[in-house]
Design a protein around this nucleic acid. Structure first.
Lengths: 243, 243
DNA sequence: CAAACGATTTGACGTCTGTCAAATTCTTGG
DNA sequence: CCAAGAATTTGACAGACGTCAAATCGTTTG
């Protein structure tokens, strides 16, 4: 017998390594079996497009590994990165549930594995198990709160403060703590995407980075960031701030 | 017999004048009766607070008439108006479903009538009729899309363009078309709130308004706006724009 | 009706940001 | 390993914005 390539985590959602972090965790038993039968995993290289804004919805995606960027674009070429999708996150559920075209584009930012769930399967599961809908609702509520928070910050915080905030968020996911309390972060984004996330241009971001280095708060080398003291970063967001 | 004050639209949701515009329209029969029994209408004057950001959730509100403002505030006194609630809109459903405190404050911007639905009633209805949850999900999706759109615009449009866009949106709800094609709008918001909605300060908005008047695009007198040609306004949002 | 208060407008000024352009660095395919 | 192309940084400059302050205007309260 030829050895069978390990497909355990590809074919059986019930033993998926991100199940407990995903929306599908509300399912069990037969529901999980139905899910498994309607799922196909696909591997993407970095920089591939999963779907375009305006495309018709063709099911829901679940991030198995890697990193996905969700963005809005327009005819003039403006592009704004709205959020990042990590393992366990669900993509495309909104346009599926609204019966509309995709309102955002999604692309891989790293080599990524995605599980695609067929629309009929999602519909079937939603009908069998109402808690799945409520789970999607929780996800939407959470995303909405994050969006509101971003809007609020774009009005009340400076570009520098917003970038520092973004750095702190990225540090949580992509940072490696060092024994001496400092932290190294490998940014998963280009300067342009970082800039669009805080609502400015990449040239401006470049200057903000320059000032952060001059102030000794962080050191940048390409996509590598070294933060000597996370606390010093966090203090920049405090109300009582000195220039 | 003393005349009974008309309470038809206050006590029976099944004949509510905004039912078909509200999330509750997915209910029928017994469900509607249950809703009615768990609902109480209350009249607010303009400027009253319905709930504060940080308050524990105590049920869901449904706007019957009037206008509600949903905003985020912080300790320094920054305040950003995030959206407006019109008759038929639902308030407070997110914190209810997430079991969290309110993430935003809500206040009346005009004399307003709200129907309050007790938490137990909402829970009961959600359990009896899964489509209610899906309806809330549709609402959350819609709000999320609007929030994403706002974020995108805050990056790609100028302050003036964002204000023009806001004017066009307000014109739809609060504008009165004139026979000659012009339009009069009664703004329901102060300059400060208008400014926060486009992400700037009230002084800056004042100057934008001044320029709009100088350009003959619109005339402002307090909260009254007169727009000679709506098309001229809409053209400001077109890609090919001259200074 | 008048005073008091808040909202709005206007002015002055320094800083920040966007734009255009060029230099530099980094990546990637050959 | 080199070269072409993309990404990033830096410079220069004008315009826009935020802040502080003062002047108007409008509304509310006594």
């Amino acid at each position: 017998m030829a050895k069978i390539k390990c497909q355990v985590d590809q074919c059986a959602c019930s033993v998926c390594h991100v199940l407990q972090r995903s929306d599908w965790r509300v399912l069990a038993g037969d529901d999980l079996a139905i899910l498994s039968s309607g799922v196909a995993m696909r591997h993407y290289r970095a920089g591939e497009t999963i779907y375009w804004m305006g495309d018709a919805n063709r099911g829901i995606h679940c991030v198995s590994s890697g990193l996905v960027g969700v963005r809005k674009i327009d005819a003039e070429g403006n592009s704004v990165l709205l959020r990042l999708g990590y393992p366990g996150d669900t993509l495309g559920y909104r346009s599926f549930l609204m019966g509309s075209e995709h309102k955002t584009s999604a692309e891989t930012l790293e080599p990524t594995a995605l599980c695609h769930v067929r629309p009929e399967t999602v519909a079937q599961l939603l009908e069998r198990n109402p808690s799945l809908g409520l789970q999607f609702l929780r996800r939407a509520s959470d995303e909405l709160e994050q969006a509101h928070h971003a809007i609020f910050q774009s009005v009340t915080l400076s570009n520098r403060q917003r970038f520092v905030h973004l750095l702190l968020v990225l540090a949580r996911r992509h940072g490696r703590p060092r024994p001496d309390g400092s932290r190294t972060i490998r940014l998963p984004l280009s300067r342009g995407d970082l800039a669009s996330m805080i609502g400015t241009r990449h040239e401006t971001l470049s200057r903000i980075i320059g000032r952060l280095e001059a102030d000794g708060v962080a050191n940048f080398s390409g996509r590598l960031v070294h933060v000597p003291k996370l606390d010093a970063l966090a203090e920049e967001l405090e109300p009582g701030m000195a220039a």
